[in-house]
Amino acid sequence: MDTNTDRNDVEDEEAMIALAKKDLQHFEPIYNRYYESIFRYVFRKTDDEDVAADLTSKVFMNAMNAIHKFEYRGVPFGAWLYRIAANEANKYFRESKRQLLALEDHKVRMVMNCGNLEEADAEQKQKVLAELIRELDDEEIQILELKFFENKNFKEIAFILEKKESAVKMKMYRSLNKLKERYEKMNKLGDD
Rank of each mutant, 00 (worst) to 15 (best):
N8W: 05
G78E: 07
Q99N: 14
I17H: 14
N153T: 06
K164R: 06
L103F: 09
E119G: 01
F39R: 12
R174K: 13
M110S: 11
G74A: 03
E150Y: 01
L146F: 03
L176V: 11
V10I: 03
I157Q: 04
K178S: 13
Y183Q: 09
D50P: 00
V42W: 14
K91Y: 14
V108A: 06
K91M: 13
E123C: 09
S175H: 02
M61G: 14
Y41D: 03
R83Y: 11
E118T: 03
D138N: 13
E165R: 15
N151W: 07
E118N: 06
A52P: 07
L144S: 10
L144Q: 10
E104W: 14
K185A: 02
I38E: 05
I160L: 09
M64F: 06
N8E: 04
G74V: 09
Y41F: 15
R134Y: 11
V10T: 06
E135I: 05
E184Q: 12
L55V: 08
S57K: 13
N187F: 08
D48L: 05
K188G: 09
E11A: 03
D105W: 06
L189H: 08
N32E: 12
Y82K: 12
F27L: 15
R73C: 12
F70S: 13
P29S: 14
D47Q: 12
S175G: 14
N32F: 14
L81W: 02
Q99I: 04
T56L: 12
D191M: 11
E49P: 00
